[in-house]
Amino acid sequence: MAEGKSLRVAYGEALAELGAQNDKVVVLDADLSHATMTSIFAAQYPERFFNFGLAEANMMGAAAGFAHSGLIPFASTFALFGTGRAYEQIRNSIAYPKANVKFGLSHSGLSVGEDGGSHQSIEDIALMRVLPGMTIFVPCDPLETKKAVFAAAAIDGPVYIRVARPVVDVITVEDAPFIPGVANIMREGVDVCIIATGLMVKDALAASEELGQKGIGASVVNMHTIKPLDVDCVLQMAQTCKAIVTTEEHSVIGGLGSAVAEALAGQSSVKFARIGIQDKFGRSGKPEDLFKAYGLTALDIERQCLSLLR
């Protein structure tokens, strides 16, 4: 198993690697290059790195300008300030004209930890998901983060990559495909299907393991692309399994759980539950304490599966 690392480090390294292959790639940041790790790219390609200071709205608008000029901008800051403060720039200057802008936004979700609720974006997927033409990747480990960066560059149009802060073990394999909009089935079982994204994939795998010990077969779907959602996979799972549980480090409103619910509505009567942040803001604390307090652990997933199957 390859060594674990922070997804933002994997993101910064991938940008530098991509930059070596493609001189159209430019990187923008808003005074957080040492947090988003675009600093790795900046050190190698200073002439293609642009720091906008604390001015996220200006940065996103400028990213559209780069794209309109034939370049491939990757703009980075924290998920909250990128999708939040610069929302309308993304909406009208990037998504509406289908500008070829990528934004890798770090420090998403509760795993930001001690900085607290003002910095924990629990709504970024929802905000991006309502924009027509937006692609959304939520990688689960360093390998997938790198694949997401390269896949984003290959797409013509806006792409949001949600990059979590913690150090994460590698849980996927080098030659696993990363096809936008095609989910990866990591475990197969016929009793229940856990559809997970981002940091929750490892907990879904752990829960599946525990359920297996109890004689319950749990599929695990790694939904690395939230949009376009792999609806075929969701409906397939609804036929094979007796229940579906989604899990994400995001509000249950508007994220993966909502997207899966929308796919199932009117199509399936499979038992269904969503694990995620239950319409609350975050708060300060160590990430592991917060995941417990907000019901986002492998144990919570296991219990939810058991209760649906009961």
Partner: peptide, 10 residues
């Protein structure tokens, strides 16, 4: 900055 403290990170 600890969980359940009223003193938040911000």
């Amino acid at each position: 900055r600890q969980i359940d403290s009223h003193l938040q990170g911000h």
